[in-house]
Structures are given as C-alpha cells and as structure tokens.
Amino acid sequence: MSLAPVEELFTVFNETAMIMQEELACTYLEALAETGENLFQERILQKDELSEVTVKRLKKSYDSLNLHTYSKENIRKSFQLAILKGMNEIVQPNHQMTPDAVGMLVGYLVDKFVKEETFRLLDPAVGTGNLLTTVINHQQKKNVEAIGLDIDDILIKLSYVNANLQQHPIQFFNQDSLEPLFIEEADVVVSDLPVGYYPNDVRASEYEMKADSGHTYAHHLFIEQSMRHVKAGGYLFFIVPNGLFESEQASKLHTYIQENANIQGLLQLPRSLFKNEKAAKSIFILQKKGEGVKPPKQVLLVNLPSLSNTAEMEKILRKIDGWHKENK
C-alpha cells in the first residue's frame, strides 16, 4: 500500500534526521535542518563528518524522493510534522507552532484583504516559517516577496530550509526583531505574536508603548515595530491573546492603535484549539492609517466555531465575504 504524500515525505525527513542526530550528536531539530538542506541541495553536505555507511543510507533515502513531484503544501505539512516531533523533545514556551487551521485562515484573510498582485509580506516573529509559508501558499495567483525575522538561530535555520524546500523567495534575518530593522517597508504583516515581557528596558524605552515602570510587554512592542515597517494603508494580521486589552499596560496599546491604525476585525478562535482558556487567542486585523485610508463602516467581529465544523465555518466565511463587499 503506497503512503500518502505527506506521510511519505515525513518518513524521509524523520528517518534521515534520526540517522544524523545520532551520528552528529546534535538535537533532532538541528539534524532536521541539516537533512532538509541536503534534500534542497541534492547532495550530502556533511560527508566529511559521517561514516561511509551513513552516507550510503542517507543517499538511498534521498534517492527514493523526487521533491519536484510534491505540492508546496504537502512539503510544508510534512516538514511541520517533523518539527513538531522535535519540539516535543525540547518544549520551550517560545517554540510553539501556530496551528495549521489558524495559518490557513490567516492565509484566506490576507488573500481577501490584499488586492495587489505583487506585495511584500513581513513576519517579525517567523519561528519555523510555518505561518508565513502557509499564508504564501494560500495566495491566489499572487506574487509574494517575504521577509522573516527571528532571534532563535535554530528556528531561523528551519525557516530557511522550509522556504527553500517550498521554493519561496524569502529573506531571513537572525536578530532581535525589536532592535532597529534595516528592511524595506512591507505591504502586509502577519505574526503569531510572542507573548510576555521584553527584558531589554533600554531598547523598550525607544517605543511609544514603553511601560511606565518595569518591563514592557513584548507583544505590544511587536505591534508597534510592525506598524513602523508597514506602508500607509498596509494591513496587519496578528494572532493575539484574548486578554490583549485587559492587562495593566492595555491603555497605552489602546491609545497607540487609535492614533496609528484602524481596527478592521477581531476573530476569536475556538477554545478547543487551546489547552486552557488563558491560552486562547484571536486574529486581530489592523490597517495602518494614511492619506485616503478610511475606517470600515463597522468592525468585523466573529466568534469562530470549531474549525472542523464545515457547515458553521461556511456560514462564517459567507459573513466575512458579505462584510468585505460592504466595506470595500
């Protein structure tokens, strides 16, 4: 019985990563990045560090695949499965991946809101590149140039390999995204915002949303940094905690958004996606103010049903469609 494409790819990613993890004495995620790079380059880049037997085993595994016969989405999903396996071994709070269904929904919304056939897309907290490449894969006949930033060197390497395997032209920067950025302005921002306090008070003091005392929320600073690097009239799609406007620093966020953006929508994600109520999130859609940029007649407010409930989801998508026609 032949395996489904995602399973077939995952098997090769997983088996070859495990072989290299053992021989190179590294983590599974590091080995996965190495094996992904080998597949993309169509050669074994670590030959000098591996035994002859291992090189033969890897070659046999790689030769069983022809990457060009797989869709970008199948490559993304299988690579994501392997990353999830690796993350389960070393659970760190900043290594959480955006659920697939949420990424697809953000991709659908970007496609709905953004009418330009060519646009620049920025993710300032790109992680493994899963959200960014999901969004790109869901753009209908559009040409997307993308930029991804992350402070974690392992995650950015996985991002880079992920993009190469899917043949997406993405520029990656391994840096603290809240430091000054030397990038071109984006038309659109997407980001699953890192939640928590930002430890660098000196850097935070250069932001309008800096806390009056103590550390500032990183997710607030990411919103401000994104707003600085998106064009006037550009859209921003953030995955945010549901309690975004309930914290002790919320008044600064409220004032900043009022002055700089128009709120387009807030879509509350189903609770079933999250381990507990405190972890629940929403998709927050903003448009940067600028000449000729008008706020919507009304903000799109949606409580999403379970994403596997097809009939209810179709109703919601029709509601989004109707709202869109009325407000554009």
Rank of each mutant, 00 (worst) to 15 (best):
Y160G: 10
F222L: 12
I285V: 07
L301M: 15
K47I: 02
V189T: 04
E30G: 10
N327Y: 04
E49C: 12
I320N: 07
V6A: 00
Q225S: 09
H95S: 11
L121D: 02
S159D: 11
L122W: 05
I263L: 09
N303V: 07
K157F: 09
S177K: 12
E23C: 02
E224K: 05
S51H: 07
T11S: 02
L132K: 02
V12M: 02
N262E: 14
I147G: 10
H138V: 01
K315Q: 09
H68C: 12
I257P: 03
E179S: 14
Q268W: 08
F79S: 03
R57V: 14
R120K: 08
K294S: 13
M209D: 07
Y256G: 13
F13R: 00
E8W: 00
L307P: 02
P180L: 11
K297W: 01
E246T: 15
G107P: 05
L244V: 12
D152S: 11
K142I: 00
S226I: 02
K157M: 13
I223G: 08
P296V: 02
A218C: 11
K275Q: 15
Y198V: 03
E37P: 10
H324C: 10
F238A: 11
A125F: 04
G86D: 02
P241H: 00
G290F: 05
Y198P: 05
F284N: 07
Y217R: 12
N262S: 13
K278A: 15
A101Q: 15
G290M: 04
A17R: 03
S64A: 04
H168A: 12
R120P: 00
Q298R: 13
T255S: 15
N94A: 13
M97C: 10
G292S: 04
Q268K: 15
K281W: 00
L149A: 14
N303P: 14
N164D: 07
A31R: 04
N14I: 00
P295T: 09
L273K: 01
Q258M: 12
D111P: 04
L193Y: 01
A204D: 05
F284K: 06
T69W: 06
V55N: 08
F284A: 07
Q139H: 03
M87N: 15
K281N: 07
P5A: 00
I151H: 15
N200A: 08
L50Q: 01
R318F: 14
I285K: 04
F222C: 10
A311R: 06
T128I: 05
K289F: 05
R76E: 03
A33T: 04
N260W: 05
E37W: 13
C26H: 05
R43Y: 10
K294W: 09
G86R: 02
F284D: 07
V240T: 06
P169M: 08
N162C: 00
L253P: 10
S251Y: 06
G103M: 06
K72L: 12
N276M: 02
P305F: 07
T27E: 05
L267N: 00
G233T: 06
F222R: 09
E277P: 08
V161A: 00
A146H: 02
